[in-house]
Design a protein around this nucleic acid. Structure first.
Lengths: 115, 115
DNA sequence: GTGACAGGTAGGAAATTTCCTACCTATAGT
DNA sequence: ACTATAGGTAGGAAATTTCCTACCTGTCAC
């Protein structure tokens, strides 16, 4: 039985694959493009790639528009806002750590100059 | 054969499970705690839960410290910075969506593929 | 029309993930 | 030393994911 999953779950699951993250990056950097051009970056049979697109579609992270016999995929970044929102309460935890690390490195630097 | 995966891959993969995301939230909100207390929130056999902790450990998202016969797990938020960094180039896209600017840029991009 | 091209779905093999029960180790209390 | 507790590992079943080849549909070019 396929559990009813929150939209958030589908987004995080979609991002779990390096292939799918790369597709999103390509759409961001190069704008909307047909499947053909996206697929060129991956060493994979076309139907396999199609499946990845489906996962992204169902997570709402891309949309598709037919143009002639091509399908133009484009980034739908809005759902990524949910990831951002999940992440942000953690932010102060790593900022404190990173700051602490910088302080540590700074103090080690000082020691080198002290002798 | 298990492919050599980037640390980033392990982090995103770890976040793909709602159980593991919830564990991270609990550690963030309630501080370091033993397995027992964390496990209480999930309807799952203990060894299954142990596996989830292992995934989080191997992603570097939690650390463990022995205290008597308990093991205190604590949040290690720093690796989440990588998620933030992956995410941030996308941020302007969902912000622009609100201004309507993005749609204009996309339609200009699309023309390049239309003939 | 016929052929070629873009890209999807169908069905299945293989790998991975998720969960289980059974068992092991280490520590604490008596 | 004995028992109970905390939490891990081992091994395996079931579900899911990832990839494949084969095939179908829709559109363009002739």
């Amino acid at each position: 039985m396929a559990a009813v999953e929150a939209p958030e779950d589908r987004i995080f699951a979609a991002l779990a694959s390096p292939v799918r993250r790369e597709v999103l990056r390509l759409l961001r950097e190069e704008g909307p493009q047909p499947v053909q051009r996206l697929a060129g970056h991956f060493d994979m049979a076309r139907p396999s790639f199609s499946e990845h697109l489906k996962v992204l579609r169902e997570a709402g992270l891309v949309s598709e528009r037919k143009v002639g016999r091509q399908r133009l995929y484009r980034l739908e970044a809005v759902p990524l806002n949910e990831v951002q929102e999940w992440l942000s309460p953690f932010e102060r935890f790593w900022r404190e750590k990173l700051t602490g690390l910088r302080d540590l490195l700074d103090s080690m630097d000082e020691e080198r100059h002290e002798r």
